[in-house]
Design a binder for these strands. Structure first.
Length: 263
DNA sequence: CCCCAGGGTAGGG
DNA sequence: CCCTACCATGGG
């Protein structure tokens, strides 16, 4: 269990950073790290169902980024007026530490797309190519499996023109042409450059992959909503002192603009 | 019919 | 460097 202060499970799982959780009577079910996760938020705690302390420490503490002091970040961010307002509504969001390859594929699908359709495509992709880990539950497929597919194998997943992007990404990772493990710590510009050799990875998708998949917290995905926020509130850029954690600030501002502000 | 969706690419100035 | 048309697909 995790204390609930400054932690909103529903916002964290539904703010558009991950796509494999759904809510049923207040309980969230989903798949990450090749495991089925059942989890709920009570008044004071986040409760993990069917979970040993060992598994929580080995897998999920990292996934939910329990080591980061979000209260300290809120204090830092609150010096800024707009972020202060955003945090009032969205401060329970945590930036998840997701699998790098899954994040890469997921945000290739996200381009010029909407969240319900992204979710649908990803679930269909897992059903077709992922290993079955429980009834009607499938893990995210690995790079080798996707790389061995052909374009026609992707039909019916509502990927549109993005099918060849997935294949290119899977082949570059599977062949070793791209070593994703380097992206955690290599210089950030090198990480961006590496990802952008993949067809369909531009500036925005690269930032998403690095932030959500490789814990590069300085990365700021500039989607249509964040562009509106920047134009309206930050024409001179984000405050200097938050830049090392700008990705987390971005998550608050993105969700604030999308769900609470009127643009 | 239009527009938009967590954009990127190719092609032309 | 900039700008624009186009890219599949579904929902409003």
């Amino acid at each position: 269990m995790i204390p609930s202060s400054a932690f909103s499970l529903s916002m964290t799982l539904q703010c558009g950073q991950c796509f494999r959780f759904f809510e049923e009577n207040g309980v969230f079910l989903g798949v990450a790290n090749g495991r089925l996760l059942k989890i709920e938020q009570t008044d004071r705690f986040i409760r993990f169902f069917d979970m040993t302390q060992e598994e929580f420490q080995a897998v999920w503490a990292n996934y939910f980024d329990c080591a980061t002091d979000y209260d300290a970040l809120h204090t830092l961010f609150s010096n800024d007026q707009t972020l202060c307002s955003a945090i009032e509504k969205t401060g329970g969001i945590r930036v998840l530490r997701q699998d790098g390859f899954e994040t890469l594929i997921s945000f290739l699908i996200s381009q010029n797309n909407n969240i319900p359709r992204i979710t649908k495509s990803i679930n269909l992709l897992c059903e077709r190519f992922g290993s079955r880990i429980a009834p009607d539950t499938f893990a995210f497929p690995d790079a080798k499996t996707l790389a061995s597919a052909s374009l026609s194998d992707f039909s019916g997943l509502s990927l549109g023109y993005r099918d060849r992007y997935l294949l290119d990404a899977a082949q570059k990772v599977s062949s070793g042409e791209i070593d994703l493990s380097k992206l955690y710590t290599c210089p950030i510009e090198e990480a961006r450059q590496t990802l952008r050799t993949i067809c369909g990875v531009g500036p925005k998708v690269a930032e998403c992959v690095l932030l959500y998949g490789f814990a590069r917290l300085s990365c700021v995905p500039m989607d249509t909503w964040m562009k509106k926020v920047m134009a309206r509130y930050y024409q001179a850029g984000l405050p200097e002192e938050i830049l090392p954690y700008a990705g987390i600030a971005q998550q608050y501002l993105f969700h604030y603009a999308r769900c609470f502000d009127t643009f």
